[in-house]
């Protein structure tokens, strides 16, 4: 089962703006790109050609692992605005 299938049953109330942001210049210099490894929802993808970190914030599970794993402390991590984001039915 791939990550999209795993995320499929979840309900989200998606905001039009991202609650996660990075400085791409810093990402460019980052060798490990740990955010792409630890995120349980595969939110982060490094696009080598464009030199940008693609952030699919709409899939975020709001765990915070990316912020802690980032060696450059480059992820501006906030909670989504009240009542936005993921809504768990089981927890």
């Amino acid at each position: 089962m791939n990550i999209d299938d795993k995320l499929a049953p979840l309900r989200y109330n998606t905001d039009s703006e991202s609650h996660l942001s990075v400085d791409n210049d810093v990402c460019m210099r980052c060798k490990t790109k740990s955010c792409t490894k630890v995120c349980p929802a595969n939110v982060y993808e490094w696009c080598e050609d464009d030199g940008i970190l693609r952030i699919r914030y709409e899939n975020c599970l709001e765990c915070g692992a990316c912020r802690i794993a980032c060696e450059k402390k480059n992820i501006a991590w906030r909670y989504p605005k009240a009542s936005y984001g993921v809504k768990f039915k089981n927890g």
């Binding site: 795993k6 049953p9 599970l61 765990c63």
Partner: peptide, 9 residues
């Protein structure tokens, strides 16, 4: 049947 996938620290 998968009903929920979730994550937490």
């Amino acid at each position: 049947e998968l009903v929920e996938y979730n994550a937490h620290l």
